[in-house]
């Protein structure tokens, strides 16, 4: 474990908590893409099937929290507060993300076993899972501040993981190209948002995308 990965995981945890609190407190999931949240639930389910393989208390605890929180978020959006779910703007065709990720996982992986292919699928899936949410923000042309804080924390997590991978390569000579390439793609997808967040939201303005 290193500081980059620890802060990255905590940023990830913070993002998930911000989102849950936003929906729970405002009793509304307006502006939130349910599709992205379903994709995240798929990501954690397919990645953490190795939960029985004990790595550390921290590792096991975080996996349980991420799985539970992602399903809780999907439940809040599609069941409890479904009246506030914005169908009309959450229209990204997720099949164009799921299928290619799965096919790519079958073609490019470290080991052609069920667990490893599903882990690889979760890595590819996670790198594009935020697209429906970013698409929804671009369609509505804006995002609530709390939603942009969620996106900033979520985007920062994988950006910090890139620093973790650099650190691990230089100190432990450990690297995983699949995770690294997907993590770079994932972080690049946030760049446009990061720019808007830093130039607007941090100055107290609302996140307005050029429509």
């Amino acid at each position: 474990m290193n500081i980059f990965r620890l802060v990255g995981d905590l940023s990830h945890l913070l993002a998930i908590i911000i989102l849950l609190l936003k929906i729970w407190k405002t009793r509304s999931c307006a502006g939130i893409s349910g599709k992205s949240q379903i994709l995240f639930a798929i990501v954690y389910t397919s990645r953490y099937l190795d939960l029985p393989n004990f790595v550390s208390m921290y590792n096991t605890l975080m996996k349980i929290v991420f799985i539970a929180a992602s399903y809780a978020t999907v439940y809040l959006i599609y069941m409890k507060f479904k009246a506030t779910y914005d169908h009309n703007h959450d229209t990204f065709r997720v099949e164009f993300l799921v299928l290619p990720s799965f096919v790519l996982a079958l073609l490019i992986n470290h080991d052609f076993t069920v667990l490893e292919v599903l882990w690889t699928f979760s890595i590819y899936m996670e790198s594009v899972a935020i697209l429906p949410q970013l698409f929804m923000v671009s369609k509505t042309g804006e995002a609530e501040s709390i939603t942009s804080h969620y996106l900033f924390a979520l985007g920062s997590y994988r950006a910090l993981y890139i620093l973790n991978w650099i650190y691990r390569y230089t100190t432990e000579d450990h690297y995983d190209l699949i995770a690294i390439v997907a993590g770079i793609v994932q972080t690049v997808l946030y760049c446009d948002f990061f720019y808007l967040y830093i130039t607007k939201v941090l100055k107290g303005k609302k996140l307005q995308l050029p429509a």
């Binding site: 995981d9 790595v55 975080m62 991420f66 993981y161 995983d176």
Partner: peptide
Amino acid sequence: DSEHEIHDEL
């Protein structure tokens, strides 16, 4: 290809 090891990252 890094040899197959368990994934210790989240």
